[in-house]
Design a protein around this nucleic acid. Structure first.
Length: 570
RNA sequence: CGGGGCGUAGCGCAGCCCGGUAGCGCGCCUGCUUUGGGAGCAGGAUGUCCCAGGUUCAAAUCCUGGCGCCCCGACCA
């Protein structure tokens, strides 16, 4: 490609509305432009990167035995009612009516469509297993799109769905996909971890997320310093204490104390001269409309996902003031477990606590010396709090490390959630009807590209790994008005093209500085500079974007050097 | 949905308080010079000042309503 003919609008200034580096650089490097909130156009340079990444995805999916299809984005309400998600998916599911007044939605994911297809076409165990995938546009009506293509409304995703005869089969399919994902992200040169994850609104029995490690990531990750354990913070387990051991301490009589306007744990513990860890936080939640009191130690925080999963409810939200008042008889800030009209569940951290402080269910009062068993009864103890760096690994007892991550892939073992809801069955060897056992596997295409930029950039711009770089080489004639330089760069351009190298020649009549800066910004891995000085000695310069190293090579060695560098990096 | 901010040339912004000819930098176009890290000089083009209504002799500026975008939070693949 000739730069002079490229539709590549680079921008010098940092766009005011771009927060994170990848967003800034994708705009500056002329990869994307915003149409409206959370909806982007990919320009030629950006789309080339997308295509390169998609190609890796396709190669690895095909290698793992998956087959590509292309499903519709517009989907009928009926399918979503069958799966039960028409009501449960929430506002992220964009719904609309067609001209015949039929309810439709834009697909945020394709479990319904694929399950419908497969149940109609696959009838016997002989046709199983199957793994079917697509790369398709999804629409999720995000509450707040941000970070460019990282969290947007319309985006491209690779989604695969596996159908197996039984549990054993789905475990094999899951492992294959897991392996394919490892290869995909390795080939992109990303630093990433697979972590245990919550299944969210997709559902299913267990899942792993593939997380690119980056400080700007929206997810918190926990991993063990000694064993392989790694999890999303929202999933990270905390080792169950060995049992209730009351530390010999005597139960002290209850005492109600006046705590005017002291609502937070900090205020109460300061006011009563105790440690936050001596106070119990009583959080009132509405679980499908029913009040539940969740008790955690004052120095820890409730993990709502754990609570939601423990209660197995559809909607879990903080109770509103009315519900709090009904349950406790007091305004927000003074809830406690004594006499509360709600189910009480407590985090394991309460098992060893004695004579603690909690709200009195009365405005401006707290109670001291509360004890479980004597003063309150707890329905059950469970792991309900967010893991902290002082916690130990639930598997081996090692120390936990924390990091931020960008979720680029997610693999789910779905089980029979959708096949049961939508009656996707086959006949087994005995002629008996069985539910297919499913898995689903997603990769965010645009997001992976953005994550790669988060990890690979410097103050000058993007630093693409060779495997997904829009072009592998850029030739920079320092001055196109110099006939000799021009002829030689054209010659090099032609011979690289002939060898199948993705090459761009910057034939613009611009000053060298402009070309160098643009080349750095768009992040091409190799830059060949053709200038008067080196040329007079029959030499050219090859600069490696990543290391910044410059090689001065004899003119006739340049093509060979590039070919071996490129082949090694792919 | 709650809180905050912004909307003026392609981009980044000033002007708005205190109403009176719409500006700056970058980019763009033309010419000359220049040519190894975002050139210099000279000349030039470009605006429904987000939209609608109101106040006023006069509105980018004041008032009302709307729309859009961004940030924080709640929420979530």
């Amino acid at each position: 490609m000739r730069y002079s003919e490229l539709f590549l609008p680079t921008v010098r200034e940092i766009p005011a509305d771009a927060e994170i580096v990848s967003h800034q650089l994708m705009i500056r490097a002329g990869m994307i432009r915003k149409l409206t909130s959370g909806i982007y156009t990919y320009l030629p340079l950006g789309y080339r990167v997308i295509r390169k990444f998609e190609r890796i995805v396709r190669e690895e999916m095909n290698r793992a035995g998956a087959q590509e299809v292309y499903m519709p984005m517009v989907q009928p309400r009926e399918l979503w009612e069958e799966s039960g998600r028409w009501n449960h998916y929430g506002k992220e599911l964009l719904r609309f009516k067609d001209r015949n007044d039929r309810d439709c939605c834009l697909g945020p994911t394709h479990e319904e469509v694929i399950t419908d297809l497969v149940r109609n076409e696959i009838k016997t165990y002989r046709q199983l297993p199957r793994n079917i995938y697509q790369i398709q546009t999804k629409y999720r009506d995000e509450i707040r799109p941000r970070f460019g293509v990282m969290r947007c409304r319309e985006f491209s995703m690779k989604d695969a769905y596996s159908f197996d005869a039984d549990e054993e089969g789905v475990d094999i399919s899951y492992k294959k996909m897991f392996g394919a994902y490892m290869r995909i992200f390795q080939r992109c040169g990303l630093r990433f971890r697979a972590v245990e994850a919550d299944t969210g609104s997709i559902g299913g029995s267990f899942s792993h997320e593939f997380m690119v490690i980056a400080d700007t990531g929206e997810d918190s990750l926990v991993f063990c310093s000694t064993c392989d354990y790694a999890a999303n913070l929202e999933k990270a387990e905390i080792a169950i204490p060995e049992g209730r051991k009351v530390s010999g301490e005597e139960f002290v009589p209850l005492e109600t104390v006046h705590t005017p306007d002291m609502k937070s744990i900090e205020e109460v513990s300061w006011f009563l001269s105790v440690q936050p860890r001596d106070v119990v936080k009583t959080m009132i939640y509405s679980a499908d409309g029913i009040p539940v009191a969740v008790l955690v130690r004052g120095d820890t925080d409730v993990n709502e996902i754990k609570v939601k999963n423990y209660l197995n409810c559809d909607v879990l939200e903080m109770a509103d003031d009315t519900m709090i008042y009904k349950a406790t008889g007091a305004p927000r800030g003074f809830a406690g477990a004594i006499g509360i009209k709600a189910r009480i569940i407590a985090d394991y951290s309460l098992m060893n606590m004695t004579n603690f402080v909690m709200g009195a269910n009365k405005e401006d009062y707290h109670v001291k010396n509360v004890n479980i068993g004597r003063d309150i009864s707890v329905d059950s103890f469970a792991d309900l709090r967010i893991a902290r760096d002082t916690d130990l690994c639930p598997r081996c007892g090692g120390n936990l490390l924390f990091a931020r991550g960008i979720e680029v892939g997610h693999v789910f073992k779905l089980g029979t959630k959708y096949s049961k809801a939508m009656k996707a069955v086959y006949l087994d060897k005995n002629g008996k009807e069985q539910y297919m056992v499913m898995g689903c596997y997603g990769i965010g295409i645009g997001r992976t590209v953005a994550a790669s930029i988060e990890q690979n950039h410097d103050e000058h711009g993007i630093i693409w790994p060779l495997t997904i770089a829009p072009y592998q080489v850029i030739i920079t004639p320092v001055n196109v008005n110099d006939e000799k330089i021009k002829i030689i760069s054209e010659k090099l351009y032609a011979s690289l093209l002939e060898k199948g190298v993705d090459v761009i020649v910057d034939d613009r009549d611009e000053r060298a500085g402009v070309k160098f800066n643009d080349a750095d910004l768009i992040g091409i891995p190799l830059r060949v500079t053709i200038g008067k000085k080196a040329l007079s000695e029959q030499k050219m310069e090859v600069k490696i974007r990543k290391s910044g190293k410059v090689k001065i090579l004899a003119t006739d060695k340049v093509v060979d050097f590039i070919l071996s560098y490129v082949n090694e990096g792919m």
